[in-house]
Design a protein around this nucleic acid. Structure first.
Length: 146
DNA sequence: GCCAACGTTGGC
DNA sequence: GCCAACGTTGGC
């Protein structure tokens, strides 16, 4: 799950402990959010910044949460086509789990994994929520504990 | 349903 | 700041 650290970083999550992962406005990403289950582990990815890469772990603690920002006219994520009765955007609540001592940089990820193994290394990939195959996830966890 | 125009993401 | 690679919008 990607976030721009200038907007919301893993430090922010660490301080808050939990947060509703709102602001996703892409149907494919939303569908991946939908598939998540309570207890699932997600990687926190810092994007569009100086140190790009996977910075830590979080846990999914609630699923099918309404993204309230879609109803908020003052929010940049306001969606005029969404109503309380017919919301378009739901998401998950995540809990801070771990911040890696060292970021696993995009460069490292590119060296270790193919596009098939880890979609985030694919050029032009813009999805902010991406599934990670189990094999790949296990390898990344090993890399983080070095 | 096609596709040009436009807007956004995100690495570099 | 640039720009490739998308996704979305809207006219037709």
């Amino acid at each position: 799950m990607k976030s721009e650290p200038q907007v919301y970083s893993i430090e922010d999550l660490k301080q808050e402990n939990t947060t509703i992962w709102d602001g996703v406005r892409n149907y494919q990403a939303r569908n991946y959010l939908k598939q998540m289950q309570i207890g699932d582990i997600a990687f926190f990815y810092h994007s569009n910044c100086k140190n790009i890469g996977i910075i830590g772990l979080m846990k999914i603690v609630e699923t099918n949460v309404f993204d309230r920002t879609q109803f908020d006219t003052k929010s940049p994520y306001f969606d005029e086509k969404a109503t309380e009765n017919k919301p378009r955007w739901h998401t998950v609540k995540v809990q801070f789990k771990e911040k890696f001592e060292e970021i696993i940089s995009l460069n490292t990820l590119k060296q270790q994994f193919t596009e098939e193994e880890l979609l985030v290394v694919k050029k032009g990939n813009r999805l902010s929520v991406i599934p990670v195959p189990e094999n790949t996830a296990q390898k990344i966890l090993l890399m983080s504990s070095k």
